[in-house]
Nucleic acid binder design. Structure first.
Length: 423
RNA sequence: GGAGAAGUGGCAGAGUGGUCGAAUGCGGCAGUCUUGAAAACUGUUGAGGGUCACACCUCCGGGGGUUCGAAUCCCUCAUUCUCCGCCA
């Protein structure tokens, strides 16, 4: 969430930049400022009441010590009134703080100056494009047909076992998945990211830490028996490593990577865009996460973008880079860069990675800080990105690399798969 | 799943009703010494709210209670450790 002093000092800017997200935050911003003023007033009154009460208690203690029991008992009566008053005030304070926080939770992060205006993904700004779109043979097919022809992914079987959106990968399909995971992790660790294996279920506190809760619980699978949630992305367990921590400035940046399955309810999705691997309830993803010094976070974002570019180039997939417009920007992000890969048989671009800088928005909720040169605790910046998400990479490999003889394996992956063609 | 124990500042670790926001050590920061560094020595060093700055308030796993007063007593929840059971 945003910090109240920041909102106060940059009120007009906050409102005007949030307008890029097509929301009018005027009312929420005003309300935050008013509630904070109210909170301060109550806090001050409560503090004074408690100070008085503390003072009396000390006096009572001293009187008892010096054997003046009668005087002490007389003072006790006075404390009763103060106690009643402080009870009322603290209830009032709690209610106000809660109201303040719930308003803060509703205000998304303030988009970076470079974020273009726009309503939907159609308004995202393409900034770069590389790689040749392959010319496929006449009998070329979309990946869901290829998957069936070569028996490497069985969607119906997954439907039988679980439901739609839970595919079963078979034989070379499964090996290709495993190869991609290992390949991505190797690329990430070679770039300085430390590999982590993370829990696939998270508790409520973690959901709050990264912003999935309180508003977006409908997007996660909820294990009600234990009140845990299945992770929608490794970002959640990975970033919550740093919840309630004070890191050393010298340890920044912290870079971690991890492979996890991701579970998303995707309620309300339907139609052609969910066909095959395009949108699933369970999918695999390798994530990169960074905790950065505020001075360096945008440079770090650039570095992450270059890193992912390197992987897509090595896989020889045609890709483009987009700067998300305000309307498409995720709630917690200041700036998000998307990567899309061209899927030749579907003849469309598929999103395979999303890289974001959250600045202090997550750190504020997480209480992730470092001690700066002046000895003050300062919120760190957090960033993350997919490096990479598997299903659409797989889809584009299957489609782009298909030949009449079979599906070729990208050169970079052959050491990992142990085979060079699916036929 | 059963029995017992524990949780304190960045870390380790004392503290069993008032003088405790909390001894001590490590780490951090500043200084002395040194050509410089290390060592040694001296000083300083928790977080949040509040204030121009003070004052003041809150925080000893989370929540609740007893008391004029709680790190300390009681209840409760989650966690960790030890022993037993079960087990990939």
């Amino acid at each position: 969430m945003l910090q109240v002093p920041f909102i106060k000092e940059n009120k007009d800017k906050v409102i005007s930049r949030l307008a890029v997200r097509n929301i009018d935050a005027t009312e929420m911003v005003e309300s935050v400022i008013a509630l904070d003023e109210k909170r301060k007033a109550i806090q001050t009154e409560l503090d004074n009441t408690l100070a008085e009460s503390n003072k009396l208690s000390k006096e009572i203690g001293m009187l008892f010590k010096s054997g003046k029991g009668a005087e002490a008992n007389a003072l006790k009566d006075q404390t009763a009134v103060l106690k009643e008053k402080s009870k009322t005030l603290s209830d009032d304070l709690n209610a106000t703080t809660e109201e303040l926080n719930s308003t803060l939770y509703k205000i998304p992060n303030v988009p970076h100056d470079s974020v273009p205006e726009g309503k939907s993904d159609e308004d995202n700004l393409e900034t770069f494009r590389e790689g040749d779109i392959p010319k496929l043979h006449d009998a070329a097919k979309p990946h869901w047909e290829l998957a069936k022809d070569y028996n490497i992914i069985d969607f119906e079987l997954g439907t039988k076992i679980t439901g739609a959106g839970f595919p079963v990968y078979i034989d070379k399909g499964a090996r290709l998945q495993r190869a991609l995971i290992a390949y991505f992790l190797d690329k990430n660790t070679a770039a300085g990211y430390t590999e982590y294996q993370l829990p696939h279920l998270i508790n409520e506190a973690s959901g709050f830490g990264t912003g999935q809760l309180p508003d977006k619980e409908g997007q996660m699978y909820h294990v009600t028996g234990d009140n845990l949630y299945l992770i929608p992305t490794a970002e959640v367990p990975g970033t919550n490593i740093f919840r309630d921590t004070l890191v050393n400035e010298a340890d920044l940046p912290i870079s971690i990577t991890g492979y996890t399955p991701c579970f998303r309810r995707e309620a309300g999705s339907y139609g052609a865009h969910v066909r095959g691997l395009n949108r699933l309830h369970q999918f695999d993803k390798v994530e990169i996460i960074r905790v950065e010094h505020p001075d360096n976070s945008f440079k770090a974002l650039e570095g992450m973008v270059e890193h992912i570019q390197g992987i897509l180039k090595e896989l020889e997939l045609p890709y483009r880079i987009l700067r998300l417009c305000g309307g498409d920007l995720t709630f917690t992000s200041v700036l998000t860069i998307d990567f899309e890969v061209y899927s030749a048989a579907q003849e469309k671009w598929l999103e395979v990675s999303s890289v974001s800088n959250f600045e202090t928005y997550q750190a504020n909720r997480l209480k992730l800080r470092f001690k700066n040169k002046d000895g003050k605790n300062e919120f760190a910046h957090t960033l993350n990105g997919s490096s990479l998400a598997l299903p659409r990479i797989l889809a584009s490999i299957l489609e782009n690399y298909q030949t009449p003889e079979g599906i070729k394996v990208p050169k970079a992956l052959i050491p990992y798969t142990g085979f060079d063609i699916i036929n």
